[in-house]
Amino acid sequence: MNALAARRRHPAAIALLILVGLLVTGAAYAALAPKPAQASTVSADQVQQGKKLFQANCSTCHGLQAEGSKDGPSLAGVGAASVDFQVGTGRMPMTRPDVQAPRKEKVVFSEEEIAAMGAYVASLAPGPAVPDQEFTDGSKGDPAKGGELFRVNCAMCHNASGAGGALTRGKYAPSLHNVSGKHIYEAMLTGPQSMPVFNDNNITPESKRDIVAFLHSVDKQQNVGGMALGRLGPVSEGLFIWVFGLGIMIGFAVWLGQKSA
């Protein structure tokens, strides 16, 4: 009988066993459980900086404590991903109240400032975090599969080639051309404005990456057939044939008609 077996009825044994069990479970969980896709650790300083930025720039509509007002929704629980998407694409802060915040080329805040505001908003209530780069890099995805997913889930509003489309009463699904993988992913995750949320059970992170891959393949696509006419389909084709096709034909007909024999 060895020493370990002799002490198996020691009063501390149960406590020790529980401790070991907890450690193993914890370590296994830490190793195997899906990590929250948090790129950087959040410090208290960052939250403070974010709070200041928020109160200076966003509180007019969203309220001093982000509790919301009649002009803007509460931000409790929207998560850092939502902040990163809305501010990172220039949608927020909005220049004026409108049915929908348009994407703007000029982004007001730096990466750090956006991260700080994200940290502040995330500190209010748990919400989706900024996604891991692993799943936002389109080059790791399968564009063909992403295309199928896009046509089933997204094309009815965003158009089969991501050119965008109209919704009711002045709202619209924006064009998805030249949008970064991170922002596409965040939009699916948070469902900004009129868009529904596609959480990880609807569309897995890998499938979201495939969709990003598809959209980036559309961006990179050369227009093999010539000018794309805005990729708007038969409407712009019809306009083109009436204006240019018919215009050129009438021009030639007038020219030929004036030529004497």
């Binding site: 046509r151 009815m156 158009n159 089969a160 010539g226 000018m227 084709e237």
Partner: peptide, 23 residues
């Protein structure tokens, strides 16, 4: 010079999806 009906951009037909800008 000018593309018409870029069928590759629309993808194959399947009764479940539909695209915005269907004209």
């Amino acid at each position: 010079l000018v593309t018409i009906n870029p069928i590759w951009a629309y993808g194959p037909y399947d009764p479940s999806p539909v695209t915005a800008g269907s004209q």
